[in-house]
């Protein structure tokens, strides 16, 4: 609840009018409710976990009631233990309403927005606040429009690789701490934390500000994570993917994201490899799967050894 009042980003324009002691209440539903009929006594479908919005309709209706009835209605409404009440359009809130809210310990707030605008904004706000989130240790970059999350042990060179990519004109979203939120059923979006945003630590240089050093085009506020790329030390015992035919997945907040495990070794230009990974991803989005197409081509060639006489010649 407290977060409602502190918010700047979603332009809610809320002012607390009464019921401050109820500010620790929790809103657990991303939907709001216009109580309408509940004021006429039909309180069965009143959802206590939702934010209740009173617009012109509700306020005018209350005004038409004789005072006694009005108090009764308000008491019945607040007795449902609703999360909070928001009156929109900056409508003057009668004493009766604030008193009833205060008595029930339900925050009564006012917004200067029209009901429709307010509902739109509050819904985005609630979705943002109530969605699953986590933070991850890694670097998130926008490489050719593809969101790539670099993972790997501390000291493997994630930040250095990211810096190299920024030098090539790609964009940094977050270094080290990536705050991840689930946007839709199958998309997760990462952003930097408020404090260290646009900063990076490079061993030997210290903390640097990417935005100041490279300009606004070198950074990005948030980006959907499309590839997870894990950097690991080259281990001769481990078999690395040599074909790329099978797609590996990495789960973040129950969303499966394509994953690549790339060994780091001196002489392997990681920046180039990551840029190519992004290009390859774009190709896959367009329906071209290089590895699988190659495999099919090879299979065709093997299946038709004698035709054309040359063994592996293309038939098409």
């Amino acid at each position: 609840m407290g977060a409602l009042l502190d918010d700047q980003k979603f332009d809610l324009r809320l002012v607390l009018v009464a019921g401050a002691r109820g500010l620790s209440r929790k809103v657990s539903s991303a939907r709001i409710q216009k109580p309408g009929l509940a004021l006429a006594g039909f309180t069965e479908y009143l959802h206590r976990e939702r934010i209740q919005v009173f617009g012109n309709t509700e306020m005018s209706y209350l005004k038409t009631l004789p005072r006694e009835r009005r108090l009764e209605v308000l008491q019945a409404f607040f007795a449902q233990d609703v999360a909070c009440l928001v009156v929109t359009k900056d409508i003057e809130i009668p004493e009766d309403v604030t008193a009833a809210g205060e008595a029930a310990g339900v925050p009564v707030l006012r917004s200067s927005h029209l009901s429709s605008t307010f509902i739109e904004n509050i819904q985005s706000f609630l979705e943002d606040q109530l969605t699953a989130s986590t933070s991850m240790h890694g670097v998130l970059l926008d490489v050719l429009g593809v969101g790539i999350l670099l993972l790997g042990k501390s000291g493997i060179g994630k930040s250095e690789i990211a810096l190299d990519l920024v030098m090539r004109g790609h964009r940094l979203v977050a270094d080290d701490i990536v705050e991840v939120k689930r946007r839709t059923q199958d998309a997760v979006v990462g952003a930097g934390s408020e404090i260290i945003k646009h900063h990076m630590e490079i061993r030997g240089l210290g903390i640097i500000n990417i935005k100041d050093l490279f300009g606004v085009a070198a950074i990005r506020e948030r980006k959907k994570i499309e590839i997870v790329l894990e950097l690991c030390e080259w281990d001769p015992e481990v078999e690395y993917d040599r074909l790329g035919v099978d797609d590996r997945k990495f789960r973040i907040l129950d969303v499966e994201i394509p994953m690549l495990v790339v060994p780091v070794r001196p002489g392997r230009n990681m920046t180039t490899i990551i840029e190519v990974a992004a290009r390859n991803h774009l190709l896959k989005l367009q329906g071209h799967h290089s590895a699988r197409e190659f495999q099919e081509r090879l299979n065709r060639a093997i299946a038709l050894p004698s035709e054309g006489g040359g063994g592996g010649t293309e038939v098409e």
Binding site: S135, H137, G155, D176, I177, I195, M200
Partner: peptide, 16 residues
């Protein structure tokens, strides 16, 4: 509720 890697300075700074 925020968990960070203690071997990275940016992480530790994020704790504020």
């Amino acid at each position: 509720g925020l968990q960070i890697n203690a071997k990275s300075i940016m992480g530790v700074l994020t704790l504020a």
